[in-house]
């Protein structure tokens, strides 16, 4: 049965890792702002050159 003790020790180690991860998450401010990141992730990182082209096209059109 002593194998249970080994397993218990191992499972405790894993559980403590998760507790540590939770603490790290709280400390690093992941729970401070629960809204903005959900918006931020939707922003596209368009390349600058692309935008220049779009602008040029619009310019031509308006002429």
């Amino acid at each position: 049965m002593s194998v249970i003790l080994v397993l218990i020790g191992f499972s405790l180690f894993v559980a403590l890792m998760f507790l540590g991860a939770y603490f790290w998450a709280v400390k690093s401010g992941q729970y401070d702002d629960k809204y903005t990141p959900s918006v931020r992730i939707l922003f596209d990182d368009k390349k600058e050159i692309e935008k220049d082209e779009i602008k040029d096209n619009k310019h031509k059109l308006s002429k």
Partner: peptide, 21 residues
């Protein structure tokens, strides 16, 4: 108030961890 909330989160973490185990 921000650090108070954080403290509460830590406490919940500890309590939840202990409760589950």
């Amino acid at each position: 108030s921000n650090s108070e909330t954080k403290k509460l989160y830590y406490k919940i973490g500890v309590a939840g961890f202990a409760f589950g185990n």
